[in-house]
Design a protein around this nucleic acid. Structure first.
Length: 245
RNA sequence: AACCUUAUCGCAAG
């Protein structure tokens, strides 16, 4: 079953739903029972396509067929519901988890926080951060990065930079994505010097800037009229060949 | 035990 799941997942990743469905059929035919994970793969795909109704149907199937589900099962649908701005539905599922013997984890909350940030509801997201803390869960790099992104989009870049300090104080290390998010926020608001400082700090900290980092930096520097710096960066890029995605 | 879920992706500035 795991092999089938792996294959189905591969097809879904490249948007080949047809082939994935075929495999699913083959799986059933060969007497291999689809697991909750199998359903989750499709559920996630439907969520990403905005086909929430279909995703919800699959979720119910999992329950009805008494398949062994876990927090991930919930997380996938919650993420989909949040993305579709169906907050009430999502909250309902969150409250449902304990009743099913499941404990919401950081990914569960991150789904809410990330999507709240995208909706420019950073305040609510920040409130959730406190809730997460008081519930005993540890906000992770994803949590902080999402909040930084939200703050930047909200024009609160300084606040985002402050969060970087806070996350460190709480023992969480930034990732390349974290830096990229902040660099982008700084450059978009013309804070070129700060961005350059942060970039240096990133490199000092033994982080490997990826293709996106260079993209962000070069655009930002070029926009600021710093063609020399942009050129230097380009040279550096050609020499170092950053990590591919 | 293994396979599945969340952040830099820009749907108002591009």
């Amino acid at each position: 079953a795991v092999s089938y799941n792996t294959l189905i997942n591969a097809f879904l990743k490249e948007d080949n739903v047809e082939e994935a469905m075929k495999l699913y059929a083959e799986m059933v035919e060969s007497g291999c029972k689809p697991s909750a994970t199998t359903y989750c793969l499709f559920m996630n795909k439907y969520c990403k396509q905005g086909q929430i109704a279909k995703a919800q149907r699959l979720f119910e199937d999992i329950i009805d067929e008494n398949l062994a589900f876990d927090a991930v099962t919930y997380n996938i649908l919650i993420e989909g519901l949040c993305k579709a701005k169906l907050w009430d539905e999502a909250s309902r599922l969150l409250e449902d988890m304990p009743k099913k013997g499941l404990t919401p984890d950081i990914v569960t909350y991150n789904a809410f926080i990330c999507n709240l940030c995208e909706e420019k509801k950073v305040d609510q997201a920040m409130n959730l951060l406190e809730e997460v803390r008081s519930s005993g869960l540890i906000p992770d790099t994803v949590t902080y990065t999402a909040l930084m992104e939200g703050l930047c989009k909200n024009g609160e870049v300084e606040e985002a930079v402050r969060l970087l300090e806070k996350m460190r104080q709480h023992g969480q290390d930034p990732s390349v994505v974290t830096y990229n998010t902040l660099l982008r926020g700084l450059l978009k608001t013309g804070k070129v010097v700060e961005a350059e400082k942060l970039f240096a700090e990133m490199v000092d900290g033994c982080y490997f800037p990826d293709a996106r980092t260079y993209d962000i930096m070069m655009h930002g520097l070029a926009n600021a009229g710093k063609s020399i710096e942009t050129y230097k960066l380009l040279k550096e890029l050609q020499l170092k060949k950053p990590m591919q995605e």
